[in-house]
């Protein structure tokens, strides 16, 4: 299991290859890559702030919960911080399980958490100035799906 923050662009394909290597008992790897959107020219740079130490620990706790809940074999999360250009990857999530359903669901669960509850603050820079982005109602209801089950 690994959770890391980076202020450098990363290549998702290389992360998938490394994550899949040497697994003889893993039937399924599910991955998600989130990219920065240009929002039709409204966003020229996305700036992401974390609280070093606190942010990794908070994500680590939810990864532990996902490992138990879905019986996962492994999880890798890489999250960008700092200034991110449209088209660059912001987040990479990979889950490994014996079978596909657990891998898919855990990936979905982890992303819902990251979107609404993980300690990041997101600011959009564009021609119209800057604005802080807070979770949408949809992000919040997506996350509560998992509370009821």
């Amino acid at each position: 299991m690994s959770v890391s923050l980076t202020d450098r662009p990363f290549e998702p394909g290389a992360l998938v290859t490394a994550f899949c290597a040497g697994r003889e008992e893993t039937g399924a790897v599910a991955t998600f890559v989130g990219l920065a959107r240009a929002e039709k020219g409204r966003a020229t740079v996305l700036e992401l702030e974390a609280y070093p130490g606190f942010t990794e620990a908070a994500i680590g706790e939810i990864v532990d919960a996902a490992m138990r809940r879905f019986g996962l074999q492994d999880v890798v999360i890489v999250h960008r911080v700092g200034r991110i250009a449209p088209g660059e990857a912001i987040v990479f999530v990979a889950t490994a399980a014996g079978h596909r359903r657990e891998a898919f669901e855990a990936c979905d669960f982890l992303m819902d958490y990251l979107k609404s509850r993980a300690p990041f603050w997101k600011k959009e820079h564009g021609p119209g100035g800057v604005r802080w982005i807070e979770p949408t109602d949809r992000d919040r209801t997506d996350a509560t799906r998992w509370d009821q089950e």
């Binding site: 989130g34 606190f54 992303m111 979107k115 509850r117 993980a118 300690p119 990041f120 802080w132």
Partner: peptide, 10 residues
């Protein structure tokens, strides 16, 4: 002491 406004990742 850290003051944390509503969070939004991903």
């Amino acid at each position: 002491v850290a003051f944390l406004p509503p969070m939004s990742g991903g």
